[in-house]
Amino acid sequence: MRIIVYGSLRRKQGNSHWMTNAQWLGDYTIPGYALYDLGHYPAVVSGDGAVYGEVYRIDSTILAELDALRTKSGEYKRILIGTPYGSAWMYLYQRPVTGLTLLPGGDWVRRHEDPSDEAG
Protein backbone atom coordinates (compact mmCIF):
# COMPACT_ATOMS: atom_id res chain seq x y z
CA MET A 1 0.00 0.00 0.00
CA ARG A 2 1.02 3.62 -0.43
CA ILE A 3 0.71 6.88 1.49
CA ILE A 4 1.32 10.48 0.51
CA VAL A 5 2.70 12.78 3.21
CA TYR A 6 2.84 16.56 2.96
CA GLY A 7 4.10 17.93 6.26
CA SER A 8 5.98 16.80 9.34
CA LEU A 9 6.25 13.21 8.02
CA ARG A 10 8.27 14.34 4.98
CA ARG A 11 12.02 13.76 4.72
CA LYS A 12 14.11 15.83 7.15
CA GLN A 13 11.01 17.01 9.03
CA GLY A 14 10.15 16.57 12.72
CA ASN A 15 8.14 13.35 12.38
CA SER A 16 10.05 11.79 9.46
CA HIS A 17 11.27 9.02 11.81
CA TRP A 18 7.79 7.46 11.44
CA MET A 19 8.71 6.81 7.77
CA THR A 20 12.07 5.10 8.47
CA ASN A 21 10.87 1.70 7.24
CA ALA A 22 8.86 3.10 4.32
CA GLN A 23 10.08 3.06 0.71
CA TRP A 24 10.09 6.50 -0.95
CA LEU A 25 8.53 6.22 -4.43
CA GLY A 26 8.63 9.86 -5.53
CA ASP A 27 7.13 13.30 -5.22
CA TYR A 28 3.67 14.37 -6.35
CA THR A 29 1.78 17.66 -6.31
CA ILE A 30 -1.81 16.94 -5.29
CA PRO A 31 -4.31 19.13 -7.19
CA GLY A 32 -7.57 20.33 -5.63
CA TYR A 33 -6.32 20.84 -2.07
CA ALA A 34 -5.15 23.69 0.15
CA LEU A 35 -2.43 23.64 2.83
CA TYR A 36 -2.79 25.48 6.16
CA ASP A 37 -0.31 26.09 8.97
CA LEU A 38 -1.29 24.65 12.37
CA GLY A 39 2.02 25.60 13.99
CA HIS A 40 4.14 22.46 14.30
CA TYR A 41 2.39 20.62 11.48
CA PRO A 42 0.04 21.38 8.58
CA ALA A 43 -3.57 20.76 7.64
CA VAL A 44 -4.78 19.82 4.16
CA VAL A 45 -8.38 20.39 3.11
CA SER A 46 -10.19 20.30 -0.22
CA GLY A 47 -9.73 23.64 -1.96
CA ASP A 48 -8.25 25.63 -4.77
CA GLY A 49 -4.60 25.02 -5.38
CA ALA A 50 -2.24 22.12 -4.96
CA VAL A 51 -0.17 20.56 -2.18
CA TYR A 52 3.33 19.14 -2.55
CA GLY A 53 3.77 15.64 -1.14
CA GLU A 54 5.98 12.58 -1.02
CA VAL A 55 4.62 9.13 -1.89
CA TYR A 56 5.83 6.08 0.03
CA ARG A 57 5.18 2.36 -0.04
CA ILE A 58 4.28 1.26 3.49
CA ASP A 59 3.09 -1.86 5.28
CA SER A 60 0.09 -2.31 7.54
CA THR A 61 2.19 -1.75 10.68
CA ILE A 62 3.28 1.72 9.55
CA LEU A 63 -0.28 2.58 8.52
CA ALA A 64 -1.60 1.53 11.94
CA GLU A 65 1.04 3.68 13.68
CA LEU A 66 0.22 6.69 11.49
CA ASP A 67 -3.50 6.20 12.07
CA ALA A 68 -2.88 6.25 15.82
CA LEU A 69 -0.82 9.43 15.42
CA ARG A 70 -3.19 11.27 13.06
CA THR A 71 -6.77 10.02 13.45
CA LYS A 72 -7.16 9.19 17.16
CA SER A 73 -8.36 12.67 18.15
CA GLY A 74 -10.60 13.04 15.10
CA GLU A 75 -8.40 15.84 13.78
CA TYR A 76 -7.77 13.98 10.50
CA LYS A 77 -9.43 11.27 8.45
CA ARG A 78 -7.68 9.02 5.97
CA ILE A 79 -8.81 9.15 2.33
CA LEU A 80 -7.60 7.39 -0.81
CA ILE A 81 -6.35 9.56 -3.70
CA GLY A 82 -4.80 8.82 -7.08
CA THR A 83 -1.10 9.46 -7.71
CA PRO A 84 1.26 8.55 -10.57
CA TYR A 85 2.50 5.73 -8.28
CA GLY A 86 -0.98 4.28 -7.76
CA SER A 87 -3.66 4.99 -5.18
CA ALA A 88 -2.30 6.36 -1.91
CA TRP A 89 -3.74 7.17 1.49
CA MET A 90 -3.70 10.81 2.61
CA TYR A 91 -4.74 12.44 5.88
CA LEU A 92 -7.37 15.14 5.40
CA TYR A 93 -7.95 17.74 8.15
CA GLN A 94 -11.44 17.61 9.70
CA ARG A 95 -11.68 20.82 11.69
CA PRO A 96 -12.49 24.36 10.50
CA VAL A 97 -9.60 26.28 8.94
CA THR A 98 -11.09 29.73 9.61
CA GLY A 99 -8.37 31.93 11.06
CA LEU A 100 -5.53 29.60 10.07
CA THR A 101 -2.73 30.75 7.77
CA LEU A 102 -3.08 29.49 4.21
CA LEU A 103 0.23 28.43 2.63
CA PRO A 104 -0.44 29.38 -1.00
CA GLY A 105 2.67 27.61 -2.32
CA GLY A 106 1.36 24.30 -0.98
CA ASP A 107 4.81 23.20 0.26
CA TRP A 108 5.22 22.75 4.02
CA VAL A 109 9.03 22.60 3.85
CA ARG A 110 9.21 25.96 2.04
CA ARG A 111 6.59 27.72 4.22
CA HIS A 112 9.08 30.25 5.66
CA GLU A 113 10.52 31.31 2.30
CA ASP A 114 9.60 34.69 0.89
CA PRO A 115 7.68 34.18 -2.37
CA SER A 116 9.19 37.41 -3.72
CA ASP A 117 12.64 35.73 -3.59
CA GLU A 118 11.59 33.46 -6.47
CA ALA A 119 11.01 36.44 -8.78
CA GLY A 120 14.68 37.36 -8.68
Score class of each variant (00 low, 15 high):
Ala43Met: 02
Ala43Gln: 03
Val44Trp: 00
Val44Asp: 02
Ser46Met: 09
Ser46Phe: 11
Gly47Lys: 12
Asp48Gln: 14
Asp48Asn: 15
Asp48Ile: 12
Asp48Cys: 10
Gly49Glu: 00
Gly49Thr: 01
Gly49Met: 01
Ala50Met: 09
Ala50Trp: 08
Val51Ile: 02
Val51Gln: 03
Tyr52Lys: 15
Tyr52Arg: 15
Gly53Lys: 00
Gly53Cys: 00
Glu54Pro: 03
Val55Arg: 02
Val55Gly: 05
Val55Cys: 08
Tyr56Ile: 06
Tyr56Arg: 05
Arg57Gln: 15
Ile58Cys: 08
Asp59Asn: 10
Asp59Val: 01
Asp59Gly: 06
Asp59Glu: 02
Ser60Trp: 09
Thr61Val: 14
Thr61Gly: 08
Thr61Glu: 13
Ile62Arg: 03
Leu63Asn: 12
Leu63Met: 13
Leu63Asp: 12
Glu65Phe: 09
Glu65Leu: 13
Glu65Gln: 15
Leu66His: 04
Ala68Glu: 13
Ala68Lys: 12
Ala68Phe: 11
Leu69Gln: 11
Arg70Lys: 14
Thr71Tyr: 03
Thr71His: 04
Lys72Gly: 08
Lys72Leu: 14
Lys72Asn: 11
Lys72Pro: 02
Lys72Glu: 13
Lys72Asp: 11
Ser73Val: 01
Gly74Arg: 07
Tyr76Pro: 05
Tyr76Gln: 05
Tyr76Trp: 07
Tyr76Lys: 06
Tyr76Thr: 03
Arg78Trp: 00
Ile79Asp: 13
Leu80Cys: 12
Leu80His: 10
Ile81Ser: 06
Ile81Pro: 02
Ile81Ala: 05
Ile81Gly: 05
Gly82Gln: 11
Gly82Val: 02
Thr83Met: 04
Thr83His: 07
Pro84Lys: 02
Tyr85Ala: 04
Tyr85Ser: 02
Tyr85His: 10
Tyr85Arg: 01
Gly86Ala: 07
Ser87Gly: 14
Ser87His: 15
Ala88Phe: 01
Ala88Tyr: 02
Ala88Met: 01
Trp89Phe: 12
Met90Val: 12
Met90Gly: 10
Tyr91Ser: 04
Leu92Gln: 15
Leu92Tyr: 10
Tyr93Trp: 11
Tyr93Ile: 04
Tyr93Ser: 06
Gln94Pro: 07
Arg95Met: 09
Arg95Gln: 13
Arg95Asp: 08
Arg95Trp: 09
Pro96His: 06
Thr98Phe: 09
Thr98Ile: 10
Thr98Asp: 15
Thr98Cys: 08
Thr98His: 11
Gly99Gln: 02
Leu100Pro: 08
Thr101His: 08
Leu102Glu: 02
Leu102Met: 00
Leu102Ala: 05
Leu103Trp: 08
Leu103Glu: 07
Gly105Trp: 04
Gly106Arg: 00
Gly106Ala: 07
Gly106Gln: 05
Gly106Ile: 00
Gly106Cys: 04
Asp107Leu: 03
Trp108Ala: 06
Val109Arg: 15
Arg110Asp: 07
Arg110Val: 00
Arg110Tyr: 03
Arg110Glu: 08
Arg111Tyr: 03
His112Ile: 10
Glu113Ser: 11
Glu113Leu: 14
Asp114Phe: 03
Asp114Ala: 08
Pro115Phe: 10
Pro115Gly: 10
Ser116Ile: 12
Ser116Pro: 02
Ser116Glu: 13
